[in-house]
Amino acid sequence: MAEKSEVEEDDRVPLRLRPEWSDVTPIPQDDGPNPVVPINYSEEFSEVMDYFRAVYFANELSSRALSLTAEAITLNAGNYTVWHFRRLLLESLKVDLHEEREFVERMAISISKNYQLWHHRRWVAEKLGLEARNDELEFTKKILSIDAKHYHAWSHRKWVLQTLGGWENELTYCCELLEEDIFNNSAWNQRYFVITRSPFLGGLKAMRESEVLYTVEAIISYPENESSWRYLRGLFKDETTLYVNDTRVSSVCLKILKTKSNYLFALSTLLDLICLGYQPSEDFRHAIEALRTSDFDKQDPDIARTICSILEHVDPIRVNYWVWRKTRLPQLA
């Protein structure tokens, strides 16, 4: 079915001049008298919506109505009613949904942040069932290659994995994205999603060893990366004792602290560890000592207090948070 959605601006013929629409009387938007938030519509958009209202209220289930919804969506994709009506049309006209997927793909170029577009895409994929799996994964991959943190694309991808499957290469895909941008929090989130939910990997417990190695390496290359530190903590979810006793966690903290640069998350992680019962070695004391500068308060025998003081100083925007942490330290024996 030929859609008129991609007609170039200049070539566009107004609906009132198209013979196939001559039998329809457009219905203008009723904004009531003196509207509260009055809207002025572009002429073109107004015309399309006036014709849309006419076919919508007449419940005209025709292919020209389908083309009209495409035009309306092209001009303003946020309108729920137009999308609803389009789905009714697709169903009643028994349109080949593979074509509809192409329509969504073309629309996604310009309106990929639109909620309705993704909901519509899911509706189509649900109708197509298992055969849609690879195309859906490819589609989201394409969107993510343009914007790797695209919230809708990630949501859709998670839905595809959980509903239609396709987990086999997902961890590799996460690795690829993290290789491109190790700061990509969405990719870290997806990685966590995969290692905790993939039916092929055995769950968090089975994955912990290799994931800790991977994450520690990521932290060493970019210690200022909030996402990798949170991921590391997430690997020990509900396993506080394991977390405190895993020497790879404390070692990576020490290693970063010794470099004396980008050590904020290393320091806060060490603080967490101490609050959970970790006993820092002399090496830690030396490393912390080396971070103190003369304008900090006087030497404190309590290493946790010193850490808080340093954090107050290097992270002034959150000074109140670090002051609060200081009030919640374990008492020295």
Binding site: Q29, D31, P35, V36, V37, P38, I39, N40, Y41, S42, E43, F45, M49, L75, N76, G78, N79, Y80, T81
Partner: peptide, 18 residues
């Protein structure tokens, strides 16, 4: 005064979420 902005992009995309 949002009403006075004729044909602005904002106005067009606002109609459905007035």
């Amino acid at each position: 005064s949002i009403e006075k902005k004729k044909d602005s992009f904002e106005s067009v995309v606002m109609e459905h979420l007035r």
